[in-house]
Write a protein that binds this DNA or RNA. Structure first.
Lengths: 153, 153
DNA sequence: GACAACTAGTACAACATTCAATTAGGATGG
DNA sequence: CCATCCTAATTGAATGTTGTACTAGTTGTC
């Protein structure tokens, strides 16, 4: 027997579904309109900017962004072509590849940051009560944790 | 001057970003593994199933699912090729096109529903407290409303 | 130290999505 | 009534994403 969602649960779930779809479309649109980066490229640069030597392994990047390896390879290839990042063999592991943010990539991130943060505020953070934002943040931490621990079946 | 996010806000926002990414990937994966539908096809069928005569205008479908018109055209074309839906000219407006769910489409929806609901529960609803789910539902209703009212600039 | 089993990343092909251009019907205003 | 503008939907090309297979390096084991 299927345990269906009740009406309230269904409403909330539907609200999340359309809400995130609208939100990410709007954020992406804002960012592309006000910078030379798409949202996923921006995220790649953010991750790199927070890492020692502005460098991360491709696989770490993929896992952190919840993208497939193949997708990261393509995204990074495009970004490399544009001079935003650079790739080199990882010295400790011959199979690995390190992705490093170039100065140009850093400049692009800095240039885009204002637009993006303003957009995240206007579209999300300032629309929610602090309690709602906290509930969302904490809830999704558990959601992610659950999914990750289910992963290697 | 940019009004940056504080550390908490940043953490919550990041949690939402990776959380939804992981969630939708997992839901899509579950659904595709247990049925013949992808998540966006499932959503199309849900909308149609809730409509009078199991029929909706293409544009209504696009707006409801927050997809571009072009995307809906392509998605519906694929689904029509598989016999899940059917298209006919709208009688009241010569430009419009009505999309109707076929019996086969309804059967596919019914067959997929159990898997999908179970997955939504396991990955989201049952992982959150009722208060968190309510906060998410209500928060995103406002987020969406804000985006929609900003749309026609 | 050589075999199998595993991990990291990429290449290519199938598929999905976006963007711009196009077709066609409807509304408006002189 | 017809010129213009607007809306609905589609098309096709460019772009992005996924899935599978492949290459290469690593680890473990006997």
């Amino acid at each position: 027997m299927t345990h269906w969602l009740d009406l309230e649960q269904q409403r909330h779930w539907r609200s999340l579904l359309t809400g995130t779809s609208a939100l990410f479309a709007a954020l992406n649109h804002d960012l592309e309109a006000g910078s030379d980066l798409a949202l996923n490229e921006y995220e790649v640069l953010v991750r790199l900017s927070e890492s020692p030597d502005r460098t991360l392994r491709m696989s770490v990047l993929a896992e952190g962004l919840v993208h497939s390896r193949s997708r990261i390879t393509h995204t990074v290839s495009r970004m490399e072509r544009r001079g935003l990042v650079r790739r080199q063999a990882a010295c400790d592991d011959g199979r690995g590849v390190d992705c490093t943010m170039t100065d140009e990539g850093y400049a692009a991130l800095v240039a885009a940051a204002h637009v993006h943060v303003t957009s995240v505020r206007a579209r999300l953070v300032d629309v929610l009560t602090p309690a709602e934002l906290a509930a969302i943040g904490e809830g999704f931490e558990r959601v992610t944790a659950r999914i990750v621990e289910d992963r290697p079946v």
